[in-house]
Amino acid sequence: MPAHRRVSATLLRCANCSTWADSGMSGHTLRLATRASAQATTQAQMAADALMTAHPGLTVELVFVDTLGDQRTDVPLHTMGGQGVFVKEVQHAVLRGDADFAAHSAKDLPSIVAEGLQLAAFTERRDARDALIGARLEQLPLGATLATGSVRRRAQMTQVRPDLQFIELRGNITTRLTKVPEGGALVMAIAALQILGLTDRIAEPLPLDMFVPSPGQGCVALECRADDVATAALLAAIDHPETRAAVSLERAFLAELGTGCSLPVAAHCIGDQLTGFLSSSSANLHVTKSGGRGGGPAAVSQTVTVSGSGDERLVQAAALARSLQTELEG
């Protein structure tokens, strides 16, 4: 098991940051920055264990960092700037030298890689779907309450059940599971429940075609300094190529829009099939590329087949984002 310690977000740069002069791992330690929540800690431990298995003799120490998103559980995420509120302080710990690399839920990362850092590995993706907790969709009575802090989930659920009422949902996984509204349900990512062994709480997994996940959902991304070639080489051993290819396309879609979770945006790739979803904040109907109503659709989605080189596929992902944005603004 990796060792643990906590650092303050205001610690000064470490005087002796880790370097790797040879390929021998015995006696070497890497420091892995992570949030302290149960989900973040568990997924960081899993990454640390995989890394130590790939490099016998290597030790990985967990370094806990509090983020703005952890500190302000009373504030809706979309009012705090959306993406980045769970990662910035963790990234700063790596940049300062308090840690050698960081573990993030990939869906929390802004679409543009932070200056001075690189995404060195994407671990194999878990189940990317969302799920209802407390009741199946068909069991929810007219006007039932659904708890979710995600504007994407609210927009997508409104397409299917415009009668539903929404309330905010913040806190760690265990806390959220205690907040199922009376006669209602809450929405959570299946991957988070998988990490903590809580999938028995799922009432209904939601289909990917109707409830497109956030870009990167279900994947853990490992980030190190851009000039730390040695650490990046070590992390490459646990990079999952298929996941990297898929998440890179999803991130390219998001980057083209220039938005995070402050707008209802979703993208998910399986193999060569990339699905994008984009909605206005007041979406109340669901349309596809076949057309809309009343002067422009409130939400648009489309699945395209991407092909060619890696760079060509990224261009196609960006083109899909532009196409959906044009139609939404119709």
Results as ranks from 00 to 15, higher is better:
residue 197 G to E: 11
residue 191 A to R: 11
residue 229 V to F: 13
residue 77 L to G: 09
residue 300 V to I: 00
residue 158 T to G: 02
residue 29 T to H: 13
residue 181 P to N: 01
residue 327 E to T: 02
residue 243 T to A: 12
residue 128 A to C: 09
residue 14 C to W: 07
residue 57 G to E: 13
residue 64 F to H: 15
residue 108 D to H: 01
residue 172 N to F: 05
residue 76 P to S: 10
residue 303 T to Q: 02
residue 87 V to F: 03
residue 319 A to C: 08
residue 84 G to E: 13
residue 1 M to G: 02
residue 154 R to T: 12
residue 117 L to H: 07
residue 325 Q to V: 01
residue 111 S to T: 02
residue 231 T to M: 04
residue 225 R to P: 12
residue 302 Q to H: 05
residue 138 E to Y: 09
residue 44 A to P: 06
residue 82 G to A: 13
residue 138 E to F: 08
residue 279 S to Q: 07
residue 23 S to E: 15
residue 296 G to K: 10
residue 178 T to R: 10
residue 152 R to F: 03
residue 289 K to N: 08
residue 93 A to P: 13
residue 76 P to M: 04
residue 225 R to L: 01
residue 219 C to F: 04
residue 66 D to F: 09
residue 212 V to F: 12
residue 235 L to F: 14
residue 63 V to I: 11
residue 138 E to S: 15
residue 269 C to N: 09
residue 265 V to A: 15
residue 158 T to Q: 06
residue 230 A to H: 00
residue 176 R to T: 04
residue 185 A to W: 06
residue 97 G to C: 04
residue 209 D to G: 09
residue 179 K to Q: 13
residue 250 E to W: 01
residue 185 A to N: 04
residue 279 S to F: 06
residue 235 L to R: 08
residue 285 L to V: 09
residue 279 S to E: 11
residue 221 A to C: 01
residue 322 R to N: 11
residue 49 D to K: 05
residue 268 H to N: 07
residue 265 V to P: 15
residue 37 S to C: 12
residue 163 D to W: 02
residue 134 G to L: 09
residue 144 A to Q: 07
residue 148 T to C: 03
residue 328 L to Y: 14
residue 121 A to N: 06
residue 265 V to I: 14
residue 318 A to R: 13
residue 54 A to L: 09
residue 305 T to D: 05
residue 133 I to H: 08
residue 251 R to M: 13
residue 227 D to M: 10
residue 29 T to Q: 11
residue 128 A to H: 06
residue 246 A to S: 02
residue 303 T to K: 00
residue 287 V to P: 09
residue 304 V to Y: 03
residue 228 D to S: 12
residue 215 P to L: 15
residue 115 E to T: 09
residue 20 W to G: 14
residue 245 A to L: 07
residue 249 L to N: 10
residue 308 G to W: 09
residue 229 V to D: 14
residue 174 T to H: 10
residue 249 L to A: 03
residue 285 L to I: 10
residue 133 I to C: 12
residue 19 T to W: 14
residue 182 E to C: 11
residue 140 L to R: 01
residue 216 G to T: 00
residue 94 V to M: 13
residue 14 C to L: 12
residue 90 V to S: 05
residue 242 E to T: 05
residue 65 V to I: 14
residue 127 D to W: 15
residue 188 M to Q: 08
residue 135 A to C: 10
residue 297 P to L: 04
residue 59 T to R: 15
residue 139 Q to S: 02
residue 14 C to N: 15
residue 303 T to N: 01
residue 190 I to D: 08
residue 15 A to M: 10
residue 311 D to F: 00
residue 302 Q to E: 12
residue 265 V to C: 14
